[in-house]
């Protein structure tokens, strides 16, 4: 059974047409399921966990990056997580802004998303972990004053720019090979002097006394922080045009 989790922002009137279009398309494809609207629900975690306990085969995040993060946050580190990992698929339907995670999976719009749900092409995806936060895409921080500690060595960066610690590549313009199911993080450092550095690591400790670490463009985390990766944690329904093999 499909369970569609509609995020709170979809309650706004400007999304009514998109929702109508989505529901008609899902009906046409025979993909109807249970709809849960997060607007108005106080205990989001318990609601999502309950659906998995009731045997949801596919949980579909309808909304944006934050919707996906809410669903993963509701499941991970709970008693139902092993069931979710074995039996449940995660689907995405992007509506609204801030949908880099869906883009990474090759899901550009509602119509794409419905066709992709029907095709059920599945990939196991790693999760990034910083403290109590899990992320799919990336963590980023200003490069000037940032120190990275990896294995037996450290990197110091004085130039202004950006450090990205990538699990799942979200920007098509980045000309790097990134694999979200290799159990590794890809570290991309790009400074204003237009020089680039690229390293892969399983774990990295990051420190910057002035700046905070931004997770999936949503949460801010103080440093020093340790970022690691958990291999093959989520079964995601992906499109052909995804940004990875």
């Amino acid at each position: 059974m499909h369970v569609y989790i509609y995020d709170e922002h979809l309650n706004k009137a400007k999304y009514n047409r998109a929702i109508n279009r989505l529901e008609i398309r899902l009906t046409d494809l025979g993909l109807n399921g249970k709809i849960i609207r997060l607007g108005g629900i106080k205990n989001i975690k318990a609601t999502i966990q309950n659906e998995i306990k009731l045997g949801a085969k596919t949980i579909v995040a309808v909304g944006n990056n934050q919707t996906v993060n809410k669903i993963i946050g509701a499941i991970i580190d709970t008693e139902i997580y092993s069931d979710f990992k074995r039996k449940t698929l995660l689907g995405l339907i992007p509506i609204g802004d801030d949908n880099s995670i869906a883009e990474s999976f090759g899901i550009k719009n509602i119509e794409d998303a419905c066709t992709i749900l029907l095709a059920r092409r599945i990939k196991q995806i790693d999760l990034g972990l910083v403290g109590d936060y899990y992320f799919l895409n990336q963590a980023s921080i200003q490069s000037a004053g940032t120190t990275l500690e990896i294995d037996d060595y450290s990197l110091e960066i004085e130039e202004r720019g950006e450090v990205k610690i990538i699990n799942l590549l979200s920007d098509q313009s980045e000309k790097i090979k990134s694999n979200p199911h290799d159990g590794k993080l890809d570290i991309l450092i790009r400074t204003r002097k237009k020089d680039e550095s690229f390293i892969t690591a399983e774990k990295v400790k990051i420190n910057n006394e002035q700046e905070k670490l931004l997770i999936d463009g949503v949460f801010e985390v103080e440093t020093p922080s340790e970022i690691s990766v958990l291999k093959n944690q989520v079964n995601v329904i992906v499109g052909k045009d995804r940004l990875f093999e």
Partner: peptide
């Protein structure tokens, strides 16, 4: 697989 750019200083055993 690994690129250390001109603005980066690495210290330690780099393998």
């Amino acid at each position: 697989e690994t690129i250390i750019g001109a603005s980066i200083k690495v210290k330690g055993n780099f393998q």
